[in-house]
């Protein structure tokens, strides 16, 4: 039996250690060693995107990454997208916009969309279609997926705007407080 390598990495914010054979892909490690089966295997050769995860913030086909390559990396899988039992806006919009039918490609689409919207919450339809072109969906014809990503981007943009406005508001309160403190 093939010799195994010890790997330490971070998955969904938790430090994780595992042993893997040199020939095992990250997808195989996620699914079979760590039992994170949310990332799906559709082709195992980088053409369908169902296994997409974020590796140091970038979307990758986890079937094309070896388990031994992720030492000291930051990985986000579909299991790490919803926070504290609250769906992420992309997940919520996929549900409200009926952007899934069989759902097997959905985790991959959500990860790719997350990478895109984290960078730019207001992409054009063309940009969304270009970024999602590495993820195959055979059920929806993509229409409702593109719309869900547009809708999620709007929510994320608003949230970001609200957060920065809140930060500014906090900042100005803080400076006023400081000024008051200074005036004393």
């Amino acid at each position: 039996m093939a010799k195994k390598t010890h790997v330490t990495t971070t998955i969904n914010g938790q430090q994780v250690e595992f042993l893997c054979e040199a020939r095992q892909s990250l997808l195989e490690v996620l699914r079979d060693v760590l039992h994170l089966t949310g990332s799906k295997e559709g082709c195992n050769n980088g053409n369908c995107g169902a296994c997409t995860v974020l590796l140091d913030g970038l979307p990758v086909d986890s079937c094309l990454v070896l388990g031994v390559e992720v030492e000291a990396a930051e990985i986000t899988t579909i299991e790490g997208v919803a926070q504290d039992s609250c769906l992420h806006p992309i997940q919520q919009c996929f549900l409200e916009d009926a952007a899934l039918q069989c759902g097997v490609c959905t985790p991959g689409f959500i990860m790719t969309a997350k990478a895109l919207l984290d960078r730019d919450p207001n992409p054009s339809e063309e940009e969304i279609r270009f970024q999602l072109a590495g993820n195959l969906c055979r059920c929806t014809g993509y229409d409702k997926i593109v719309r869900a990503v547009q809708d999620a981007g709007q929510i994320m943009g608003n949230q970001r705007g609200a957060t920065s406005a809140a930060a500014q508001a906090n900042g100005s309160r803080a400076s006023k407080a400081k000024a008051r403190a200074g005036s004393k």
Partner: peptide, 11 residues
């Protein structure tokens, strides 16, 4: 829906 957007649905 929730199971399918969080990766919990068992295929």
């Amino acid at each position: 829906g929730a199971d399918k957007v969080t990766g919990r649905a068992v295929y």
